[in-house]
Design a protein around this nucleic acid. Structure first.
Lengths: 193, 193
DNA sequence: ATAATAAAACTAACATCGTTAGTTTTACTT
DNA sequence: AAGTAAAACTAACGATGTTAGTTTTATTAT
């Protein structure tokens, strides 16, 4: 087959497109190769392993998520920023569920680069929390709490756990965020003492 | 090979043992068969598919989780019960991470039986919330919020997302639960109006 | 222009996975 | 003792990720 100007970046982007349109489950290196008009083995001239590919896609997903968060909180402060960020996070998880799932599969533990990318997710949250009068330690705790709420909610909704009752799901989410804001304000009072 | 008294229940239990001791990732029907001194194809005399097996394991996991929750809240009320339940849930996720992951992989959407099993997770939480003066709708929302917090936290810790900072992880969790209790009390006030 | 080189494609194959079809053995029932 | 149904077997299929070894292509150096 005639050599084509296949870029590593193009391959990754194609993989992302496939995952977003047809789901993470049905994705495979062979189908990716097919879409690129290449045999599966030829992929290994550009990537080292499927793990490496997923890692690369994970970077992309994290950077996209960060982008969305940052643009959401731009020019906002405190509770308004918290709500904007949570809203953006929720929409990302809902509109791009397959890409969001890739982030989950990242082995945060081992890979140092991914570990570092994790900071990209934390950073916008920390920025928002800086609008509150909190100690550094409080911010660390609260950032974890905030992520847990958003992450847990998205995953459960995606898994279909919320279909049991007909109560509005987005209203539940807003309530969760409101609860976090309550905690924030309460923590602020404690920090003042 | 001589016919042995292989029970469906025994096969499922063996699978659970393998998953708990060696991880969900490295589990396969072939290894399960090997451990049972059987060829992989013979498994199909007892189960219909690997999906069915995972579903069965999911039932087990959910019932275990429910057991733990119920025994934790026995004789407790309100915030004490909330803390006890959250504590039990957390310990379950931490001590039996591989089994907990099986619950995640359950396709809540399709399967009616699993859908029903989902109620088993919800029930203990609803019991605790009944100690608060809330409307039914509020309880639905708050039950989702509570699950999201616990679920999201466990998953992120398991994924290694909390290793970035040296702040105590369990303290973060307690803070998250405390935030939920704040929200509960606040919702109670709103319901009174 | 031609020869050398390195990148990128290829073919072929391996091990593993879930799964199916068809066959043989075992244990229980009549 | 014969018949039957359950439960084991062997053999194979298609799909997966991956490796080794080979050929083609495009670029570089002479």
């Amino acid at each position: 087959m005639a050599r084509q100007g296949l870029t590593r970046a193009y391959i990754i982007q194609t993989a992302i497109d496939m995952i977003e349109s047809e789901g993470l489950h049905s994705f495979s290196l062979r189908e990716l190769a097919c879409r690129l008009h290449i045999k599966a083995a030829s992929l290994y001239n550009h990537i080292q392993s499927s793990d490496e590919l997923y890692t690369e896609i994970g970077y992309y997903a994290i950077s996209e998520l960060k982008k969305v968060q940052l643009s959401a909180i731009a020019g906002k402060e405190r509770s308004e920023a918290v709500e904007a960020l949570s809203d953006a996070y929720y929409r990302f998880g809902k509109e791009r569920p397959e890409i969001y799932k890739v982030i989950l599969s990242l082995p945060m533990v081992k890979n140092d680069a991914i570990h570092k990318a994790g900071f990209d997710i934390v950073e916008p949250i920390m920025t928002v929390l800086s609008g509150y009068r909190l100690t550094e330690e409080q911010k660390m705790h609260l950032q974890r709490v905030f992520r847990s709420i958003m992450h847990g909610f998205i995953l459960q909704e995606e898994a279909g756990c919320f279909r049991q009752y007909s109560v509005d799901v987005e209203e539940s989410y807003r309530m969760a965020v409101r609860g976090f804001i309550l905690l924030l304000e309460n923590s602020e009072k404690e920090a003042e003492i």
